[in-house]
């Protein structure tokens, strides 16, 4: 049994095939120009779009699990997170204890999502995804809307979770972030990983 996330032959219209091997506690950082297929790759791993190929988590094949069972373990956090209720708190089973270290005010849970800034929403979406208790987190530009200090705070939180075994696939435009976070670094160009 291979621990962590493994994927073979993930392929979709014009992108792929991709093979991934992500042991627990590691981070695959993917950089590359917009439109090169980075988000589509994450969506394929999360099984949100129809595609070819198979993936395994700790040796268990994705096709043997239901879609929701897979996505509870392999959680995708898109660059533009969606909110299905008006109030921030409704999206969380309980207020996240990590909110303060990301610079979020303690009254944010009672606020309307629409009243939060883009940067606040990006951090809330990250906490929401972490709160789901995933084995692997697929992050699409998690710090694109954040200032440098807050970005470092997010990275510190993620590094802490990685030490506890969380696997990370991190899509970022920021080469320095890929350098800091990536256990492995790949570049996407024209629907291929180099």
């Amino acid at each position: 049994m291979t621990a962590g996330l493994r994927a073979r032959g993930l392929r979709h219209a014009h992108i792929g095939p991709f093979d991934l091997d992500l042991p627990p506690g590691t981070c695959l950082a993917i950089t590359g120009p917009s439109g090169s297929g980075k988000s589509l790759l994450l969506r394929m791993v999360a099984d949100l779009d129809p595609h070819k190929g198979e993936a395994w988590l700790d040796g268990v094949g994705r096709s043997t699990l239901s879609g929701p069972d897979w996505r509870r373990r392999v959680v995708y956090a898109p660059a533009e997170p969606g909110w299905w209720l008006d109030r921030v708190g409704g999206h969380f089973p309980a207020p996240s204890p990590d909110a303060a270290r990301l610079g979020l005010s303690p009254d944010i849970w009672d606020r309307a999502v629409a009243a939060c800034s883009t940067g606040e929403r990006a951090r809330l979406a990250l906490l929401r995804a972490l709160g789901a208790g995933p084995a692997v987190l697929l992050l699409d530009e998690p710090t694109g809307a954040l200032d440098h200090d807050t970005t470092l705070a997010v990275e510190a939180l993620l590094a802490e979770r990685m030490r506890a075994g969380l696997g990370l696939v991190l899509v970022t435009h920021d080469a320095a972030q890929a350098e800091r976070m990536g256990t492995m670094r790949r570049r996407m160009a024209g629907g291929r990983l180099a």
Binding site: R71, G82, W83, A132
Partner: peptide, 9 residues
């Protein structure tokens, strides 16, 4: 909104 929930399982 729908895909945010699907992505969380």
């Amino acid at each position: 909104e729908i895909e945010a929930r699907l992505a969380l399982g």
